[in-house]
């Protein structure tokens, strides 16, 4: 069966047991204090789907429409803000929930659902909006990216004008690594523009 799934592009890089990786986010934010620095989630996250790369026999558009319809129905339990496509022909599924635990559960359930639709390969990353407070600087925002290809995390701090605050990223990266979060090597800390959260 697996061979057929692979042949027909139905194999999924995303496996349900890997979904636990996102709960690592909670491990950090559940801590009351991370030394003199606090990392928190801002109640918004997004799943990035690459719809350019799709299996040959799959009608990606109908799968996406099906997905959108199903996810927007409250019974699936994902209070989505919506779908958004961009210049890279990728699609963002936006989640908003002030309860971090619930939000991670929702992303996991949506991810499994997407994988079941045969679009597991198209899931690129889960992106959480976070804040870091250190010293006198309070709530500096950054993105916390989980690369689905590698199941590893990395921070992305944007300064506007397409510039990044690499120093803050290094600092957050070191902090995450010290908390046992699997971190992408620096050369894979790719940027992301127009994140809709």
């Amino acid at each position: 069966m697996r061979l057929f799934k692979t042949l027909f592009g139905k194999s999924n890089k995303f496996k349900s047991d890997e979904s636990d990786i996102l709960s690592l986010v909670l491990r950090v934010t559940n801590q009351d204090s991370n030394g003199d620095r606090d990392i928190n989630l801002s109640g918004a996250a997004t799943l990035l789907l690459n719809i350019n790369e799709h299996p040959f026999f799959t009608d990606i558009n109908s799968s996406l429409k099906e997905l959108e319809k199903e996810l927007l129905i409250p019974t699936v339990g994902t209070p989505l803000r919506g779908f958004k496509s961009d210049m890279y022909n990728s699609c963002w599924i936006i989640f908003e929930n002030t309860n971090n635990q619930k939000m991670v559960a929702e992303i996991n359930s949506a991810s499994s659902h997407i994988a079941n639709l045969g679009l597991g390969n198209n899931m690129t990353a889960a992106i959480f909006k976070g804040t870091i407070s250190k010293g006198t600087t309070r709530n500096q925002s950054f993105y916390w990216i989980c690369n689905y290809r590698t199941s590893k995390f990395y921070p992305l701090a944007l300064l506007g004008n397409e510039m990044r605050d690499n120093e803050l990223e290094m600092e957050i990266g070191n902090l995450l690594a010290s908390m046992g979060i699997p971190l992408e090597p620096h050369e894979n800390w790719y940027s992301l523009s127009d994140i809709p959260i």
């Binding site: 990223e169 894979n188 790719y190």
Partner: peptide, 16 residues
């Protein structure tokens, strides 16, 4: 240093 290793490319570009 390590900062210099951080790429500028967009994740989606690399994906493709």
């Amino acid at each position: 240093g390590q900062i210099a290793q951080i790429p500028e490319k967009d994740l989606r570009q690399v994906e493709h």
